[in-house]
Lab assay of single mutants.
Amino acid sequence: KTVHVNGVQYDFDNPEQAERFAKEMAKKAGLQIQFHGDQIKIE
């Protein structure tokens, strides 16, 4: 899974790890999470 945070890309082999990371980042920055198939976007 790939997580995009403000244009920066983070790759994870483990989907659960990717989602946990995305939730942490979104919570910290007060941003929205969008799921697009294999990609998670935080903007």
Rank of each mutant, 00 (worst) to 15 (best):
D38W: 08
L31T: 09
G7N: 03
Q34W: 10
E16K: 04
H36V: 13
K41M: 13
A29M: 15
E19V: 14
E16R: 05
D38L: 09
H4W: 15
D13F: 04
T2W: 03
F21C: 02
L31Y: 11
I40F: 07
F21T: 00
I42N: 06
F35D: 07
N14L: 08
D11G: 04
Q9T: 10
G37L: 06
L31Q: 07
L31C: 14
A29R: 04
R20I: 12
D38H: 08
G7H: 03
K28A: 12
Q32T: 12
P15L: 11
H4K: 04
N6G: 09
F35N: 06
Q39C: 15
I42V: 12
K23I: 14
I40S: 05
E43W: 11
Y10T: 01
I42W: 05
K27C: 15
G37H: 08
D13L: 07
H4L: 13
F21K: 00
A22R: 05
Y10F: 09
G30A: 07
K23F: 10
K27F: 13
Q9N: 05
Q34V: 14
V5C: 15
G7P: 01
R20T: 11
D13C: 13
D13H: 03
Q39Y: 14
G7A: 02
K1T: 14
A18C: 04
A29V: 11
F21H: 01
F35A: 08
I42C: 14
E16I: 08
E19A: 09
K23S: 09
K23T: 11
N14H: 07
Q34D: 07
Y10L: 02
Q39G: 11
L31F: 10
D13Q: 05
Q17F: 02
I40L: 09
V5Y: 15
R20H: 12
A29W: 15
K28E: 12
V8L: 07
K23C: 14
V5L: 11
Q34K: 11
E24D: 07
V3I: 07
T2Q: 06
R20C: 15
E16V: 06
K28C: 15
I42Q: 04
E16F: 06
F12W: 02
K28R: 08
D38G: 10
D38P: 07
A26W: 02
A26S: 06
Q17E: 15
A26E: 07
Q9Y: 07
F21P: 00
D11M: 12
R20W: 10
M25E: 14
M25R: 00
F35C: 04
Y10A: 00
E24A: 06
K1E: 03
G30D: 10
E19C: 15
H36L: 13
H4F: 15
K1F: 15
V5G: 01
D38Y: 07
F21L: 01
G30N: 08
A18G: 01
G7K: 02
I40Q: 06
I33F: 04
D13A: 08
Q34P: 04
A18L: 02
F21N: 00
E24N: 02
F12A: 01
A18W: 04
E19G: 02
E43V: 13
